[in-house]
Simulated scan of single mutants.
Amino acid sequence: MLGVVERLWRYPIKSTGGERLDQVAVESRGLAGDRLWAVRDAAGKFGSGKNTRRFRRMPGLLRLGSRYPNGLGEPQLLDTAGQPVADSDAYLRAYLRRDDVALAPEGEVSHFDQLPLSVLTTATLDWIRRALPGVPVDERRFRPNILVRTPPDTVPFVEDDWLGKTAVIGEGARIEFVRSSERCVMVNEAQPDLPHSSLVLKKIAAAHDNRLDALARVLTPGHIAVGDPLMLA
């Protein structure tokens, strides 16, 4: 057994704050509803913390939140105070000071940066906290889907040992660990109760070649919940 599911996170709108879950379905695409929506501009690029071929940097999105209030469907956008907004598109245009943005569901172009599931351990998270004693850090900076509680003597970056292996979790879900996330400036960005700090990315770059977590693909859909064991298959 690698550990136990400590927390589950889903991000209904890409690059915004997510919602904590007690349980969730795992589909072939990833957690049901995860990053299924994004802020899209007139050029078809998605709001993110960086500029790439698919993504457009839109500073401030991480200060907002998102959730599915009634199961799946169109998500609810939350303002900087955590309150739902009446008109998501109107709020985003005023907040981002752009008149060409709107919420859009995923189409042919994936909203995922890399792979659909990000798994992070408490061993790695606790190491980062110790390495940055003056910087508020929790898993929200790294946006995992699954935070795994590992045994007390587990070494940091144990996720590296899982790459190339398969694991089972919850009711029938089977995943394959593929590689680590290559981190960007989003880990530095301000979120509610988490101030901006350039030290976070610098520390990850120096200690672990800018890599953090284990990214996985879904081999067999299933259902997972907080408290489920994560076990090598």
Rank of each mutant, 00 (worst) to 15 (best):
G134F: 09
R143Q: 09
P116Q: 00
P151K: 06
R141N: 12
V155C: 02
S48G: 13
Y95S: 04
L78H: 01
R130L: 03
L36G: 12
E27D: 11
D41M: 14
R67L: 14
V109K: 01
T52Q: 08
P151W: 05
L72N: 09
A81D: 09
S88Q: 10
K50V: 15
P156S: 09
L61W: 02
L125I: 04
R54K: 15
S110N: 12
E106R: 11
R67K: 11
W127D: 08
A43V: 06
A81S: 12
S118E: 00
V158R: 10
G60V: 04
H111T: 02
R97M: 04
N51I: 10
D99F: 01
L147Y: 14
S28G: 12
R97I: 01
A90W: 00
V101H: 03
D89F: 00
F142W: 14
Y68K: 01
N51R: 14
V155F: 07
A102D: 00
D89K: 12
D87E: 06
P59N: 12
S110F: 05
T80H: 05
V158W: 04
D79R: 02
L132K: 07
P156M: 02
R35W: 05
N145M: 03
D113L: 09
H111M: 01
N145Q: 00
S66L: 05
D87H: 04
T124F: 08
Y68P: 10
V109A: 08
I128S: 11
A86T: 12
M58I: 11
T80G: 01
D99A: 07
G71L: 07
S118A: 12
L115H: 09
